[in-house]
Amino acid sequence: MSGHDNGAPVAQPTHFEFTPENLERAKKIIAKYPPGRQASAVLPLLHLAQAQHDNWLPRAAMDYVARMLDMAPIRVYEVATFYTMFNLKPVGKYLLQACTTTPCWLRGSDEVVAACERKLGIRMGETTPDGMFTLTEVECLGACVNAPVLWVNDDFYEDLDGPSTERILDALRRGEKPPIGPQIDRQTSAPVGGKTTLLNVKREA
């Protein structure tokens, strides 16, 4: 599917079905919508399928979800190709999604991307030969206050520069999970260098 890129054809599994636990979850999700409106559950079900299947969506999974929701398969393909959050081919154990939209770019996303490419020896859109990392570019992740941002699987690493990006990649390769959030001395999205307002408010006991 051209939605994400025009790479080599992907070896598609012929079969997909939810694990019993995921099937239960799927039923609960579908039950949230009124009868005849099951199609509304397509996004959560695709996410569930992707999570179950090494973080990518094979065609068999989309067909399975289509059958489950009584949708024409083409409508599920349209949804799956529309959202960049769905991976339509295998990805590395760590999916690195670098934000390069204006605020991140102004704050140095070029360095983050360059660090990834240098450290991993791959280009944007590629996967390392050992299957550990896939690097992709995303549009705004809505975390501009902590720009630049790198999204790794389910977590955001924020306030990055070249060296901090490399440290994170090294730790991931070692099997560690570096602390998520800002990579500089900063509490979440609070001002850099500490609080600047409400300094005289005492915390209640």
């Binding site: 599917m1 051209s2 994400h4 398969p73 083409i74 393909y77 190709t81 529309f82």
Partner: peptide, 12 residues
Amino acid sequence: NDVIGMAARGHQ
């Protein structure tokens, strides 16, 4: 017949 679709988004 549900064969043709509009895939992807934006420029793609």
